[in-house]
Design a protein around this nucleic acid. Structure first.
Lengths: 366, 366
DNA sequence: GGCTCTAATGTGATCGCTCACATCGTGGCC
DNA sequence: GGCCACGATGTGAGCGATCACATTAGAGCC
């Protein structure tokens, strides 16, 4: 067995004390420089900075977190696996968080199973994240968070039916004014999560209205899974718009967001004689396009299709897809702002209808 | 100003000492239970566990990291924004890491700009991650990591031309055997990152061979950005397969992975008289399909198209896309295994060709 | 000049945990 | 019976930062 010396030199990374010694000041002055405290003479500050540079000093975040009780970590809870929308939002959240000095820890729940969600939440809480952004919320997720009621503020990216109280308290204190007592809001506050979302309801109405104004009267809806808030919002918007126009839906089916499910659901709409279908996302719309093709139904001649999201590929589908654009990145940024700054951040993002070639007037309408 | 009492009750979360007192043991015994040290009598262990439960004790990870010098955090460096492949891999890495008791911190570099990459890397290093998985590596990223040569082991998900030495040392020590000296391998080791990848080269050969065997002789390649390792590997595979068959490329263009760029590049292939194009990913292939449609060229009658990745949507493109399937999730898992367990983990994932309707024999070939 | 006030810096304690080492019993062995 | 080894537990130190509280040195004013 080889005896190994502990390398008497610089075995350990430099600490504030090493820097202090090198700069000829006290460790506390080094700390002041680190946190740019005002009462440090410029000359002194420079000496310290030089010493840091020379020693390749890196502050130890664990030590800081220990004493300040602030981890400076934001958790992201996602149930998505690789879809465009959530992934875009996550990237935007991460960028925004980093710009504000936070790190981002992700936890993906495998699916909708309660156990998996619980475990992911537990993981984030154990990490003592200072806040959680929920990216693809099913009501279960929110229930879990509310039930445990860890003192961790959280925000959902999608719209929430019950916009509850407590949102004003959910903001994290900003850098300077952190009080230790903010970590124990165990008095049941923060039950409902404030939501920042693209206004799904409005988006769905836009899509539906577009079809109606083209002259369609037999309009179907291909919804997402009923346990997704996004799915129910879009469905509600669809129904509201139809109702406002005195129409009734020509079939409502539910998919699982995938193109496969869109393809599978298509026959139901054909059978119901729908001349137009509003799909709850672009992928499912693509499945519809494919099924229509296979069934010999021309799009938009025999069937108009509208999607939702405006993924980068939607404009290249055949035919290019009419859809509702969501700004996932902006939504992510706002969610973070809401979490960090409190409820005064802008609440939702306006969706826009993008008309392309997958919609047209019905073949032989009135 | 309101005077606020510090709430004499349970202002602070429970610590090992609180648990120790409640269980009637010493703090060290609590620590032993936490780390399931063998020398604790079952009865004692149970007492401690009960006390933890009663006090809702959660270990403070910062404190543990401080004393052990192990953060148990894995960093993911990604340059992708919301694409299917990287996002899938990230999700898989996260799941695998969590299963092994690690947390995952992500840092997205905005683009290819050096500054952005540097900043992301710095961020991860400042967090004292124990290892970095690079998800969408450009050579620049690797150069940055190698140059700084922080003592942080890293692994790339994609194949790397120069498979260098040092991979054997890059593995993290497993739980029990962590020595503090492992954190300063500043002796230039770990220069080249061991790579775990779908064998891009092979995948490209499969795609190209498929076209050649259908009888195509004028085959073009729509590559990805030349500063992506994936792109160059696929290009190399394409060229190798053509060369092996005595063919020369009917045009090579480079896109940026997006459908838009695929659409834009299409005309060059039409002009060059290509009867088949191998696109470096599915999105660009979709752009080609769209452009062919707009140009009145039937697919596959007038042009065969092969993609790469097999995104979930590819089978619903019109026509359904022949492509090369990559198992992103498995690659992610293996990358993590490589990072954690060292070089003996399986090195690459086999891609498979999925033949669908976008390829056929050329119109009037020999 | 002597006083106070503030800016600039230093000293010691502390966060919650693990590590190294000390202590105590108990069983096995000669 | 005495000794040793080992299992089970306790004690104190220290990780690297910040915080609360000294302390010092000028500046401003009467």
């Amino acid at each position: 067995m080889v005896e190994r010396m502990p390398e008497p030199g610089k075995a350990r990374a430099a600490s504030v004390f090493d820097v202090a010694k090198a700069a000829g000041v006290s460790h506390q002055t080094v700390s002041r420089v680190l946190n740019d405290h005002p009462s440090v003479r410029p000359a002194t500050r420079q000496k310290v900075l030089d010493a840091m540079q020379a020693l390749q000093y890196r502050p130890n975040l664990a030590a800081r977190a220990l004493v300040t009780s602030r981890s400076r970590i934001i958790g992201i809870l996602s149930t998505a696996g690789g879809e465009y929308g959530p992934a875009s939002s996550v990237a935007a959240i991460e960028a925004a968080a980093r710009a504000r000095g936070y790190s981002v820890n992700i936890a993906n729940a495998d699916g909708v199973e309660q156990a998996s969600i619980d475990e992911a939440v537990e993981h984030l809480v154990a990490l003592s994240v200072e806040g959680i952004v929920i990216v693809a919320p099913q009501p279960q997720v929110l229930a879990t968070l509310a039930a445990h009621s860890f003192g961790v503020p959280f925000v959902t990216l999608q719209a929430l039916e019950r916009a509850g109280a407590g949102s004003a308290d959910a903001g994290l204190p900003d850098a300077g004014v952190a009080g230790p007592e903010m970590r124990t809001p165990d008095a049941g506050a923060g039950d409902a999560a404030p939501a920042v979302a693209v206004d799904q309801h409005l988006g769905a109405r836009l899509a539906t209205a577009h079809l109606a104004e083209l002259g369609h009267t037999r309009i179907g809806h291909l919804a997402g899974p009923s346990d997704w808030i996004d799915a129910t919002s879009r469905l509600a918007g669809f129904e509201a718009e139809l109702a406002a126009r005195g129409l009734s839906p020509a079939g409502i089916a539910a998919g699982d967001w995938s193109s496969d499910s869109g393809y599978a659901a298509a026959s139901a709409f054909f059978a119901a004689g729908a001349t137009a279908v509003f799909a709850a996302n672009d992928q499912m719309a693509l499945g519809l396009l494919h099924a229509a093709q296979d069934a010999g139904i021309p799009v938009p001649g025999g069937l108009s299709v509208v999607g939702f999201d405006d993924t980068p590929e939607a404009r290249h589908y055949l035919p290019p897809l009419t859809t509702v654009r969501q700004d996932f990145a902006e939504a992510g940024r706002r969610a973070l702002a809401l979490l960090l700054d409190g409820a005064d951040a802008a609440p939702s993002v306006e969706p826009v209808l993008v008309v392309r070639a997958s919609t047209a007037a019905p073949a032989r309408a009135s």
